[in-house]
Write a protein that binds this DNA or RNA. Structure first.
Lengths: 229, 229
DNA sequence: TCAAAAGTGTTCTTGATACACCCATGC
DNA sequence: GCATGGGTGTATCAAGAACACTTTTGA
């Protein structure tokens, strides 16, 4: 079946910048292209939007198909519409960014997506199309948003230590933070619940584990509370 | 000429939320639809993206065609891609928002766009499609952005008084501001240049006129300066 | 002389920053 | 017993918030 239109139409795609956090580093998930153009090059997961699915649905579907990731935090980022960003034809891409808990998804993704690989954000390979621009925009968004919305927890396991949280913020913001001030502030919100467990990890004092209380955050937000790091 | 594609494609449009400021009120420019669907209803200016123009170009072209506005501040907002947002077929719309100096553009727009009209943001009519959602998103963006970027000046004439500026911020943020604190802070940036002129407006003390020094702002920004109201 | 908006400083409170030592564990 | 990261409090400084009266003009 073919479809006729009076005027030529741009093709519409979605692309996803998937962030993960591991070994105190911020990472991005890339896939190696199997087809031309840019065959063999690294690129963002993504693909064409079907005519009967929302943009969000399209992004989640492509993410599942190409990387095996499901149920992740996903948000629209920006729409890239330069005329010649794809050498084949006019393609407009609605870029998204996703945050995944690497500890959960690591194994799964490895099996479903043989040609997917995590790269430290500071050591990305050359990317296909204008995907380097998209990654830059996503990083800027993440750096901005993490300051006033508690989205960082999407990158950590459900139970985490304050040091892990601090290292996450340091990795995202690319800046060192004072340990005492960080703990004072982040505990001051009353959104981190200490667990009875501790993390025994190596030859030093075990660390208190916390979980983020998302319900409490939602309630506070409705009453005008403002998370701000 | 007709265009054949293997898969059905969404149509791609741009829509613009145009903000203006007049009589201490924030206003939005709407056009009355001449054609079905929603014939006679008020809607955002916008239209189809051509295959050889960027999204930004498309938004500016539609704005000029439908409202006579040119050389305005324009930024991409969000892309709306719900499946049934247009009753005719699948239409994905890249929404933008624009800020115009009403004093400059008022007369011009009135002639070029007979069916365009400014509405106070608090008294908008029912809008076609999902345009009410788009306006809400644009207002939220404006409220957020005006706090940390000096975009408010795009809504004021080149020469303005501090009271005008304060009323603008109050209208956008929907909150009252303390006069002395506002002036202290905004003058503290050193980006408002007092002019030799004053504004004689009615039976009260004349007000000092200022202009915003955009060049100085750009230089400061490069050195890490942060505008924050 | 009155109404109406312009203009101007100080005090208090709050949040941000800077900073150094003891603790619990594994080797 | 020592190396490693975990955990804690205070003093200083800067920015934000609250607040009331005088000035200049036109009618």
């Amino acid at each position: 079946m073919a479809y006729n239109y009076q005027y030529p139409r741009a093709a519409l795609t979605v692309d996803c910048v998937v962030f993960g956090f591991d070994e105190s580093e911020l990472k991005v998930l890339l896939i190696q292209r199997a087809l031309d153009p840019f065959k063999g090059k690294w690129a963002l997961p993504g693909g064409f939007v079907r005519v009967d699915e929302t943009l969000d649905d399209a992004a989640r579907r492509e993410l599942a198909e190409e990387t095996g990731l499901e149920n992740v935090f996903l948000e629209q980022l920006y729409t890239f519409g330069t005329v010649n960003r794809d050498p084949r034809e006019r393609v407009v891409s609605v870029a998204h960014y996703a945050l995944v808990k690497l500890t959960d998804h690591k194994a799964k993704a490895a099996t479903d997506a043989a040609n997917a690989q995590w790269f430290p954000i500071s050591k990305l390979p050359k990317l296909a199309f204008d995907h380097a621009d998209i990654v830059a925009a996503a990083l800027a968004r993440l750096q901005g948003k993490v300051r006033y919305q508690p989205i960082g927890f999407e990158l950590l396991p459900p139970k985490f230590t304050l040091s892990e949280l601090q290292h996450l913020y340091e990795a995202i913001l690319e800046a060192g933070l004072d340990k005492r001030n960080f703990r004072k502030k982040v505990l001051g919100f009353g959104l981190l619940m200490p667990l009875k467990e501790t993390q025994m990890a190596g030859r030093h004092r075990p660390a208190q584990l916390f979980r983020f209380d998302a319900d409490k955050y939602e309630k506070l937000k409705k009453r005008g509370f403002n998370f701000e790091l």
